[in-house]
């Protein structure tokens, strides 16, 4: 499956020039850019791992691209996304979010159903990617 979280997942994957154009836009708005990565793309996994704190003081798009590249190199087989944080009153939230790296294989999710009273069904989504415990997942990657 193709994970379609983020602003541009229905488009062909963005190239570096396209990513940089979006960075330019975010910086022009005065937003701070952060980079996060994960191997667990569950839609309710709010807190991906931060690749450092949001770059509040980096105004140079080339500097941010270097961090994007470094994170992608270090986590080539994980999801990496770029976020823009807006500190303006009335927002104080994320204003942009798009994926800049995907694993080669996106295994997707299993939909678990548990039958309850009446015809009620309790639903749960399980990431196939996180089927094994973290230590095993990360050890395997480190060795590969």
């Amino acid at each position: 499956m193709r994970l379609t979280q983020g602003q541009f997942s229905f488009l062909p994957d963005l190239g570096d020039a396209e990513i940089k154009a979006q960075i330019d836009y975010a910086l022009a708005q005065g937003w701070a850019i952060g980079i996060e990565f994960t191997d667990d793309p569950h839609p309710r996994n709010t807190y991906w791992t931060m690749w450092g704190t949001p770059m509040f003081d980096v105004k140079d798009p080339a500097g941010i691209m270097m961090e994007v590249t470094a994170c992608r190199d270090a986590h080539a087989d994980k999801y990496v996304k770029l976020l823009a944080f807006d500190a303006t009153k009335g927002f104080e939230t994320i204003r942009m979010s798009f994926i800049v790296n995907r694993p080669r294989d996106e295994p997707g999710f299993e939909l678990l159903r548990s039958e309850g009273v009446g015809r009620r069904i309790g639903y749960a989504l399980r990431s196939y990617a996180t089927a094994r415990p973290p230590a095993a997942r990360y050890a395997a990657r480190a060795g590969s």
Partner: peptide, 8 residues
């Protein structure tokens, strides 16, 4: 649909 797209 959530399971097939990974989106809310």
């Amino acid at each position: 649909a959530m399971a097939e797209t990974g989106e809310m």
